[in-house]
């Protein structure tokens, strides 16, 4: 088992290397002269020349990638072209709000979606099932920003229960931190809840028809033990897999949610970087998000072993 653990952890290295290569190539995939692309429409030929030099475009691609990768391994993501600050520093400053938003959304979505899916499967065909599944369709089809503005309008502006926007660092206390994240997390969680609830329902439906569930009933166990232990544990692997895949939704949604709720996180930084064609910064952010995604899915893969005793690699 330790061997598997080690192999699985090491397997993330080539994955990250390929991601890095892709991220580095981003600039060169775009048609035309990269320096001109970065410089934009209003740049003078002198500006373009300066950028060309800073990119080292006169040297071969492989050499440039090697140098960039070597710096990367030392935690150096280069310097932002717009602000002149180190990319690592810029990301570090904006990391907490974004990771907070994603973590709160993740927990909230799982806590809401899994019981929803379990209930829907348990009462399959009932009005409750139909209501929950209608909610899921709704969740899939309404854009994050619509939900976001609606929530902000009702709960912040009209009812004045929660702050309209902004972010408070966790260092200033748990509640002030959480208070600011509740509405954004609900808005961002909508699609995610719909996704998890649907897979939970489908998997539970399949599991509930299995012989061992009948055995559990025949033993006189209570319905909640049957549903949430005997059945849900068997349904866990597909559910957890979708939770991991869905993190990609969160990353994309976070960018939009942050601008709706004026959260000073990576989302805003990303938009700014794209608008300003700040390539080193874009590369840094994409790398960072990819790393989070790979890490989440590594944890998920490892959790399979705890969830299903038959899985031994």
């Amino acid at each position: 088992m330790f061997g598997f653990l080690l192999r699985r952890v090491l397997s993330t290295i080539p994955v990250m290397a390929i991601v890095a290569l892709f991220v580095f190539s981003l600039l060169y995939i775009a048609p035309g002269d990269p320096a001109a692309v970065i410089a934009g429409d209003q740049a003078s030929p002198a500006d373009v020349e300066r950028i060309r030099e800073s990119l080292g475009l006169d040297r071969p691609f492989v050499v440039r990638f090697g140098e960039w990768g070597w710096q990367l391994l030392h935690g150096n993501l280069g310097t932002s072209m717009f602000t002149g600050l180190p990319v690592v520093e810029l990301i570090r400053q904006r990391l907490e709000p974004t990771l907070s938003l994603m973590a709160v959304t993740l927990v909230f979505a799982i806590v809401a979606a899994v019981p929803m899916g379990v209930l829907a499967a348990w009462k399959v065909g009932s009005w409750l099932d139909r209501l929950l599944m209608a909610f899921c369709v709704f969740g899939f089809s309404i854009p994050v920003f619509v939900v976001g503005y609606l929530l902000a309008y009702v709960f912040a502006l009209e009812l004045d229960w929660l702050p309209v926007q902004g972010y408070t660092p966790i260092a200033k206390g748990l509640w002030p931190w959480l208070e600011n994240l509740i509405l954004p997390a609900i808005a961002l969680g909508f699609v995610y809840i719909a996704l998890i609830a649907r897979i939970t329902r489908a998997t539970m439906l399949e599991v509930l028809s299995q012989d061992y569930v009948r055995t559990a009933r025949a033993k006189g166990l209570g319905e909640s033990t049957i549903l949430f232990l005997h059945a849900l544990k068997n349904a866990a692997v597909p559910i957890v897999t979708v939770i991991g895949i869905g993190v990609a939704l969160l990353i994309g949604g976070a960018v939009v949610t942050e601008s709706v709720f004026a959260i000073p996180g990576l989302g805003r930084l990303t938009i700014d970087a794209i608008v300003r064609r700040d390539y080193p910064l874009i590369q840094g952010i994409v790398l960072m998000f990819s790393f989070v995604y790979v890490l989440v899915n590594l944890v998920i893969d490892l959790s399979y072993m705890a969830l299903d005793p038959r899985i031994r690699y």
């Binding site: 025949a218 006189g220 166990l221 232990l229 068997n234 038959r310």
Partner: peptide, 25 residues
Amino acid sequence: EMRAIRGNDISMIFQEPMTSLNPVL
């Protein structure tokens, strides 16, 4: 009341021994 009877007053052994036990417990 049925839960108190099942597995206690009346027990059942099923036709499918291969699949009647829970695989993850």
